[in-house]
Design a protein around this nucleic acid. Structure first.
Lengths: 129, 129
DNA sequence: CTTCTTTTGAGAACTGTTCCTAGAAAGTTT
DNA sequence: AAACTTTCTAGGAACAGTTCTCAAAAGAAG
């Protein structure tokens, strides 16, 4: 278990308070509120460390920058095709890769990444969608 | 329907012949075999055009560079956790987002991106996996 | 052949991320 | 508490992947 420095605490706080999943740049901006001298490099470095420690999740789907999720539990995400935000999405049932593919043709399937696409609440409510 | 220039034909050829899904850089390297003066910018520009035309697919999951698939039909992919290649994977049944999430809490789910992770044939066959 | 439009090649610019290093902070030992 | 060791940080340089710019080349139309 790694030590929680002031900077790491700030980053973790930011991610846990966020209701959407933030980019490193966004984490940096928010973290500067509590830790004004923190640097972007520190943010990147510690985001990776927190991922390794299993305290947060890194989400690399989609073409833009990566995003970070303060909730380390497995759960589904919805990416808004209109505003680009990434949010949590409650799932009715768990996804099991074995339902869809066989590990029989020589390859091995260990897991899957699943991301839903559509409109977030805010964008779905707007008229010009 | 867009015009198929020599460069576009070469790019399409490269992607259709490939048995794994290539990065722009890899497409560039291969395309130079048939079109030696082609530039990397042209490759990027035309990959995007071919995606818009629905002739190829762009795959942006994963943290590395994007990859391109010469087969425009919907199908599943396996990313090898060992060597990083991205290959096609036959699926036993189609994935239907509605089975997993409701579009009822205000947001709209239109589709999903699904990518399997594991070991490709080659890596699964090696002893030190 | 002239004109108009589209595309290209070459490289500069940009974005997001990682790397490097001297110094600061925290942890240990005495 | 001082001296020492280890870990971490700020700041910026370096890097990778992608997009942009623009003069020139290629192609279509008259």
């Amino acid at each position: 278990m790694v030590r929680l420095t002031r900077q790491r605490k700030a980053i973790l706080e930011v991610l846990r308070r966020a209701h959407e999943h933030l980019t490193a740049e966004e984490v940096y901006a928010a973290a500067r509120g509590m830790e004004p001298r923190i640097s972007l490099g520190t943010v990147y470095r510690n985001l990776d460390i927190l991922v390794e420690e299993g305290l947060i999740q890194k989400i690399t789907t989609g073409s833009g920058p990566m995003r970070f999720d303060g909730n380390p539990e497995k759960h589904a995400h919805l990416r808004c095709q209109r505003c680009g935000t990434l949010e949590d999405l409650p799932m009715k049932k768990a996804f099991d890769p074995r339902e869809y593919v066989d590990s029989s043709l020589g390859h091995v399937v260990r897991g899957a990444v699943l991301e839903f696409h559509g409109l977030c609440r805010r964008c779905a409510a707007e008229p010009d969608a």
